[in-house]
């Protein structure tokens, strides 16, 4: 028996919004430690890794490990039927071929449940090596989304250059060149507005704007985003999900032909 309950459906809606543009389907691997999903996008350029810890749920029970393959478009349709403040419970029997998603209004006067067919997805799991990143940038997630949106107008690619002075985003195309530089913030009142850079060595890498923009669909999950970079390895874009876990996107850099 698997059962997981969250106090607010809005969190699950935001998580789905953060992955459904990159992935059409995904396997939710459930164990007593929580729920994990790892999947590459269709073109195998990026990888999404979602971790939701069991202790972040209002109720969590998983007697036997189960893998639930879901069509994310179908799940998004179901989540559309929930009000943001509804409780949401996911339930499945061991070896079941369906999952039940139930919404309850705060006053318990409305209860709805949706049974969704599970899929057998033959998804390949990739081992992600431990990496010492040369640069780790933390910045407001809205600022990152704004930069990705703005620079995508000028080029398909953005060059991210991180030094101890700051982080620079550059896009060059037919129009010309756009540069956006962010310096580390001094003392700020609100931690969520700060930009911090932890640099061992300077790094310059090139990435596809299209994927960076897809990652920013996770912006509503977190006020801050963390970018981890190292020469010749994928960028990690991480959004923490408060008291519940995180979503990490890995993006292969563009390389010299």
């Amino acid at each position: 028996m698997f059962e997981a309950r969250l106090g607010q459906a809005t969190i699950l809606k935001k998580i789905l919004d953060a992955i459904k543009d990159l992935l059409t389907e995904g396997t939710f691997d459930c164990s007593d430690s929580g729920i994990q999903l790892q999947a590459m996008d269709n073109s195998h350029v990026s990888l999404v890794s979602l971790t939701l810890r069991s202790d972040g749920f209002d109720k969590f029970r998983c007697d036997r490990n189960i893998s639930m393959g879901m069509n994310l478009g179908s799940m998004a349709k179901i989540l559309k039927c929930a009000n943001n403040e509804d409780n949401v419970t996911m339930k499945a029997q061991d070896n079941a071929d369906t999952v039940t998603i139930m919404f309850e209004s705060a006053n318990q006067e409305k209860v709805s449940d949706y049974e969704m067919k599970l899929m057998n997805l033959d998804q390949e799991h990739l081992g992600i090596p431990e990496t010492e990143y040369s640069c780790v940038v933390r910045m407001p997630s809205m600022e990152f989304a704004r930069i990705c949106r703005d620079l995508a107008q000028f080029s398909e690619s953005v060059v991210i250059c991180c030094t101890k002075e700051g982080v620079k985003f550059t896009a060059s195309g037919d129009v010309g060149t756009a540069n956006i530089k962010l310096a580390q913030t001094g003392s700020v009142d609100k931690e969520e507005e700060s930009v911090s850079i932890d640099m061992q060595e300077p790094v310059t890498l090139t990435f596809a704007c299209r994927y960076l923009n897809a990652f920013t669909k996770a912006t509503p999950l977190s006020t801050q985003v963390q970018l981890s970079m190292c020469a010749d390895v994928p960028l990690v874009v991480e959004y923490a999900i408060k008291d519940l876990g995180y979503i990490r996107y890995y993006l292969a850099p563009k390389i010299e032909d």
Binding site: M40, H44, V45, L126, P234, A252, E256, D257
Partner: peptide
């Protein structure tokens, strides 16, 4: 000219 690499080239299949 830069080309897009695959994420598979960086991570190993489990």
């Amino acid at each position: 000219k830069k080309i897009q690499g695959s994420i598979r080239n960086y991570f190993t299949a489990k």
